[in-house]
Amino acid sequence: MNLVVDQSVCIGAGLCVLSCAEIFDQRESDGIVTLLRAQVPDELSDSVIGAVRRCPSGAIRIEQPEAVSK
């Protein structure tokens, strides 16, 4: 699973960090989402999906490379 974030719509709610602090972080200066790594290991996929689903501004997206190439 690959993650993409849209920093232009992020509102710094921080719910993603609550769901999965191993993957998501907030920039010190403005609270906007950053990825600690874009590639999600399997054992974290549940909490990352939770973070994506609960992001109130829709700033996080999962990219499935295989689906795109079809």
Partner: peptide
């Protein structure tokens, strides 16, 4: 101005 917002918080 998300920087101001974070500082405001």
């Amino acid at each position: 101005r998300p920087g101001d917002h974070m500082q405001a918080r």
